[in-house]
């Protein structure tokens, strides 16, 4: 039951503003991406995406996500379990540390790795002597992505776990289950939709990250370019339609993410 006291004119005004804003900032850019992507026809679009450099960029993006997302899943579950279920000194510090990657500019996130692993960096000489290449190579891209996407899973899980409380775990422990067993059979099933939600967000960010990855990539085409960097390269080469074609893949990813996110939210609601 809702009580509406605003006059009709105000309601219409507010709705119009909201719809106009939505159209201008979300729908139009999306339409623009696809319109430009197909401006030279479907054949050109397919050919652009089959270019070896484009395929290499997609491969790099997928590999990065395949490493970053599972690792952050493990970190995220462990960290949120610790924070939601236990009390200990320094909990607030841990919480703000988890949020750190969200509060610094991605460019700084990338530079940190140059300062650490670059040839002039803290570990540069040691790595150089052993012929280990971290920055300007795939490991650097993966590390930067892990750093940037670090909070995505934990931030989704902490509220879910807190809302769940400790009762079910305590019951399991009282009935004689080991801590490990309780974790797998009670804690994990309770947060499974939260985990899925976190994975979706983490994956979207891992595949779409530009700033941090741009700093550590070295921009070697075919080797250290991810899809977002490939878009920039094409744009700088005056291949505008090709750039938008590559961008449309990222836009599609965003749409898939959005749909998956909504579906998972629905599942979560139904369970409660």
């Amino acid at each position: 039951m809702s009580v509406r006291t605003e006059p009709r004119s105000i309601r219409i005004l507010i709705i119009t503003v909201a719809v106009a804003f939505f159209a201008l900032f979300l729908v139009l850019p999306l339409v623009c991406v696809f319109q430009n992507a197909f401006s030279k026809g479907l054949t050109f679009y397919v050919k652009t995406l089959q270019h070896p450099d484009a395929l290499a960029a997609m491969r790099m993006t997928v590999i990065t996500a395949l490493v970053a997302v599972p690792l952050n899943l493990v970190f995220g579950v462990a960290a949120s379990w610790l924070i939601a279920k236990f009390d200990f000194k320094g909990k607030d510090i841990l919480l703000s540390l988890i949020d750190l990657p969200l509060s610094v500019s991605p460019v700084i996130s990338g530079l940190v790795f140059i300062l650490l692993f670059g040839a002039q960096g803290l570990l540069g000489e040691w790595l150089g002597d052993r012929n280990i290449q971290i920055v300007f190579a795939p490991p650097g891209i993966i590390l930067a992505t892990i750093f940037v996407t670090f909070p995505m899973v934990a931030r989704e899980l902490i509220p879910v776990m807190k809302a769940q409380g400790n009762e079910e775990e305590e019951a399991a422990l009282t009935l004689g289950a080991s801590g490990w067993r309780t974790f797998w059979l009670v804690t994990i099933p309770n947060i499974r939709w939260g985990i899925l939600y976190g994975i979706i967000l983490c994956n979207a960010r891992a595949m779409g990250e530009f700033g941090a990855v741009s700093v550590v990539s070295g921009h070697i085409r075919g080797l250290t370019n991810t899809l977002p960097l490939h878009v920039e390269i094409l744009y700088n080469e005056y291949q505008f339609a090709a750039a938008f074609a590559a961008a449309s893949v990222l836009a599609l990813l965003a749409i898939v993410t959005l749909v998956a996110k909504t579906a998972v939210e629905g599942m979560m609601r139904r369970e409660h």
């Binding site: 490493v67 012929n131 290449q133």
Partner: peptide, 11 residues
């Protein structure tokens, strides 16, 4: 998968 990722380091 992580290990596979890291072996990319090696020339």
């Amino acid at each position: 998968a992580v290990l596979v990722g890291l072996t990319l380091v090696a020339p």
